[in-house]
Design a protein around this nucleic acid. Structure first.
Lengths: 189, 189
DNA sequence: AGAACTTGCAACACTAATGTTGCAAGTTCG
DNA sequence: CGAACTTGCAACATTAGTGTTGCAAGTTCT
C-alpha cells in the first residue's frame, strides 16, 4: 500500500509544486490574477487547482508556507550564530537572495500564516543578533541602531532580488559593500 | 456665474480630496479593498464615489496623478539641478518623504497613468544626474554605478517612509548618512 | 424665496470570480 | 488486467463587487 500510494501521491505532489511555481510567476506580475490564470500558467485545469487547494486563500497560504520553509533553510544553512559575522552576512545574503529571486511574491506573504509569521519574526531577531555581534567586533559602527540596520539590510535584499538574472554571489557582494561602506567617499561630512 | 459655479465646484473638489485621502488610507492597508470600504472611510455613500470617479480604475488613476503632482512639487522645490549636491540631496529627501509618508500607496502607482509615468521617469533621470554631479564633486565614490545608487536611494526612501510619525528632517538625515557612509566602520574590509 | 447643484438612499442589472459536482478518460503500479 | 488515483471538461450555484438610475432632501449662493 505504501509503495502504491507513495507513487500516486508523488504525482499529486508534483502537481502541487507546479501550481505553486505558476502562482508565484503569475501573482508576482499581477497580484489580482484569477485562479483561471494561475491554472493556465500551470498547464492544468482550474478544477485541478481547486482540488489541491480548497480556496484561493489556502493557495496563498501554501505559497507563504512553502517560501518560508525555503527561506528558513537558506538562513540555517549559513549558521549565522556561529560563523564570524562578516562571513555569515555574505552567506545569509547569497542564500536568501537565491530564494527571494524565485519566490519574491510568496516571501512578501510573510505574515499570512501563523507558522510563516513565527519563522519570519524569528529571522528578524536572529538578524538583529547577528548585527549585534557585528557591532561588538567593530564591524558595525558603535552608534548604529540594530533595528535600523536590519531594516536597511532587508530593503537592500528586496532591491537586489529585483535583478532576477544576476549571480547571487555577486549581488550579495555588492549589497554587503553598500551596506557597510555606503556609496560616499567620506569627503565633506 | 463664475462666482456661483466656483463655490459649488469647490464643494465637489473637497469631496474628491476627501475620497482620495480615504482611498489612500484604506488601500494602503488593503489594496483589494472595495469601493464600499473606501466610501465608508470617506464618510460618503458609495454612489457619491461613483459619481466623482467613473470607475475603480479611474479612482486609482486619479490617486496616481494626485500623488505624482505632489511628488513633482516636492522635487522641484529642492532645485536639485542648481543646489550643491549634498544640500539638494537633503532637501529632496525631506520633501519627498513628506509626500510619501502621506501618499505611500498612491506613489507606488507611478506607472498607472501615462502622465504619472512620464513624471516618474523624469524624476529617475534627474536623480541619476544629481548623483552624477555628486560623483564629480567627490561626494560619491568614483566607481559607484549611478543606477545602483538611485535604486539604493529609492529603497531607503521607501523604508524611511514607513516611519509615518517621524520628523522628515531627521529621517532624511539618517537616510543620507546611511546612503553615504553605510553602517560599517571600515574595519576588516 | 428660488436656482443650481450635491448628496444619500434604495433598487436594479451585470459581470467576474469562486467553489462544487459528476463523469469519462487517462496514468501508474502490482 | 484491475485497483487506486488523478485529470480535464462541462455544467452549475453562489457571491461579491461594479456601475447605473431616479428621487427626495439638503446645501449654498444670489
Amino acid at each position: 500500500m505504501s509503495g502504491t500510494t507513495r507513487a500516486l501521491r508523488s504525482d499529486a505532489e508534483r502537481t502541487v509544486r507546479t501550481i505553486l511555481a505558476a502562482a508565484e510567476r503569475v501573482l508576482s506580475k499581477n497580484p489580482a490574477a484569477s485562479m483561471e490564470q494561475i491554472a493556465e500558467a500551470a498547464g492544468v485545469a482550474r478544477t485541478t487547482v481547486h482540488r489541491r487547494f480548497a480556496s484561493r486563500d489556502a493557495l496563498v497560504a501554501a505559497m507563504a508556507d512553502w517560501a518560508t520553509r525555503r527561506f528558513a533553510e537558506a538562513v540555517d544553512a549559513a549558521h549565522p550564530e556561529t560563523t564570524p559575522p562578516l562571513v555569515a552576512l555574505y552567506q545569509v545574503t547569497a542564500n536568501v537572495l537565491r530564494v527571494k529571486i524565485d519566490w519574491g511574491f510568496a516571501m512578501n506573504l510573510a505574515y499570512t500564516t501563523d507558522a510563516a509569521a513565527q519563522v519570519h519574526a524569528d529571522a528578524e531577531e536572529r538578524c538583529e543578533r547577528l548585527f549585534a555581534r557585528a557591532r561588538e567586533t567593530g564591524m558595525l559602527r558603535a552608534d548604529v541602531d540594530l533595528r535600523w540596520a536590519r531594516r536597511v539590510y532587508y530593503a537592500l535584499i528586496h532591491e537586489s532580488a529585483q535583478d532576477r538574472d544576476g549571480d547571487p554571489e555577486a549581488l550579495a557582494a555588492r549589497l554587503v559593500d553598500t551596506l557597510l561602506r555606503g556609496l560616499g567617499t567620506g569627503q565633506g561630512l
